[in-house]
Amino acid sequence: MSLQPIAGTTDLGVGRWTTTGRRARTFVGRLLGRTDGLVGVVILAFFTVIALFPSVFVGPLEGVLSATGQPLDSPSLAYPFGTDELGRDLLNLTVHGARISMVIGLLATIITVVIGSTVGIVAGYVGGVVDNVLMRITDFFLVLPTIVLALILAPIILDVIGAQAELFGIRSTLLVIVIVIGLTSWATTARVIRSQVLSVKERMFVDRARVIGSGGGQIMRRHILPNVVNLIVAQSVLTFATAVFTETTLAFIGLGDPAAPSWGQILNNAQSAGAPGLGAWWYIVPPAAAVVLVVLAFTLLGNALDDVLNPKMLGRR
């Protein structure tokens, strides 16, 4: 298991986050002008297309009954990625896995960023006791081994809402993973956003707006939020990397949905089938490479966004 988003630990709090017209026009150019930005965007574009239209490329998801190949066949012309222990085409599984992994990642990211940003903005803007209480809770979640907590929470939540329930067409087993990742990984975002809000708050116009008579909620929406939105974007991209990473881990440990196999679930199947010991590398490499590429791409893109949106001073004098 790896860390929370990298940018959350770098000094994000000092830069200016203004978006001028000129900067907005050159934004895409500057992002794609960087190696990390370009590589990140290209990899993500590839996986996004696959995730949107998996059936166009490899046909419908193969199930246990619709499996067409021999068990554990190494790559061949008919099955370029080989087959799993049930004879399913691993190319088919990996491509469909993209959709499942990335949808879970996306939903979990939304929950994480919404909770994290709200807590960060409120704590940073309101300050005082509210800030203190919210930050103690945040620190608690930072220290807590959240993935281990997720291992208990997931079956409990599943038991409460029922295994067959669906929401927005997503089965409850997957939904549980989404909720668990969202609930347990917002703390880093909250911390990063809060420190940015604190520096925004120092600036004059907030005082002016307050004098004119706007309420706290209005100031947060109209004045604070636009100034931290760049940071939230960069943080979201990095959170997505963590979410895909965490989903893979949880699915591998056994919280996935065998009927809707994400990359982590495929790797779980591979482990159960004893693929590593049998030397069945083709069972492991495609889903593993997909996970690594997507996490890497989001991390690269997140850092590139961070740098482009938050230009650091080059010279001091």
Binding site: M1, S2, L3, I6, A241, F245, T248, T249, F252, L267, Q271, A288, V291, V292, V295, L296, T299
Partner: peptide, 8 residues
């Protein structure tokens, strides 16, 4: 390596 879960 940062992008790889330990089991990967």
């Amino acid at each position: 390596f940062y992008s790889m879960p330990y089991f990967v």
